[in-house]
Amino acid sequence: MSRMLMAGLTRAAPQLICLAVILLLNWLAFPGFFDMRIQDGRIFGSVVDVLNRGAPVVILAVGMTAVIASKGVDLSVGAVMAMAGAVAATMTVAGYPLLVVLLAALGTGVLCGLWNGLLVGFFDLQPIVATLILMVAGRGIAQLITEGTIVTFIDPGLIFFGTGSFFWIPMPVILAVLVTAMAVLLVRRTALGLLIESLGVNRSASSYAGVNSRLLLLLIYAFCGLCAALAGIIVSADIRGADANNAGLWLELDAILAVVIGGTSLLGGRFSIVMSVLGAIIIQAMNTGILISGFPPEYNLILKAGVIIMILLAQSLSRTGFLHVLRPAPTQTAEAKVKRA
């Protein structure tokens, strides 16, 4: 067991070093970074803050990992967050009990995911194209639900999911850990992990081997929708309201970035949920770092762009060797594509 742990740590070394450097820089910029204190039955401190604020993206990244491993992508998660938040807020205000509110909001996410999965798995649309539809229409639907206003609520039950804590630990962190643990159990204790990877690497060969790829895709996108809905509930509970315009804005991109930083290839196949979670934490640590250094929070957009370019460069180098970059090699690619066709 410890050998497996060591192997895992070695594989995660670049990401762990990256996180360590960012945390170190944060500490240099703000010496109190690692301070923690307990107040009102809850831990406070910058590190906890990173985890707390990073929770929605962590949860999104868990769902997105499964989608990307299947050689897809889900652009609609931000819009689904807005929809789920809108459903939760509106129903709470209308006086429905908490359980019904939560089920309805999560159900919204699953429904959106099933729609995406239907388009990708059964109608064979490209994932980008299929999920673009909800990305565009989703915010409109969310605004339809909230009737264009920011619906605020005071229901303590729902608010608890955003700002509450349990055994001193903030609720979003608990939820993120729970989702991660359940997802890891689900893919590693059942056959789903193997089947998703096989589907992502070679869908045709997987079908020949009897993998039910259509149903599997449906399930993957539905799960991603569920994660998005949970993230949406947390975000709206945090601000005690549903903002259809801004809830989850650009978070689909953060989620994709988290998965890519975690080392799962955009071309599908091998994936690691834990690594994606690590990727999401790295992103949040960068956000927090920029914030406490006194820069405007939007500066980290440049940082993210830099990170994407570096990763793409690194992946390209490791895929084809250093020469590939220096020498235009499209003829090889073209030939490979002819063979595939």
């Binding site: 992508v73 980008i128 991109l253 994709i256 970035l257 890519v260 955009l266 405007p296 939007e298 500066y299 980290n300 957009l301 440049i302 940082l303 993210k304 762009a305 830099g306 994407i308 370019i309 793409l312 460069l313 992946q315 390209s316 970059v325 235009p328 499209p330 690619t333």
Partner: peptide, 27 residues
Amino acid sequence: LIIHYLDVPAFIVTLAGMFLARGLCFV
């Protein structure tokens, strides 16, 4: 150039471009 020579999906490259351009605004 990046899309062609690194042979990566356009959406991820232009996503980086989107972050970069928006970030430069704020700078």
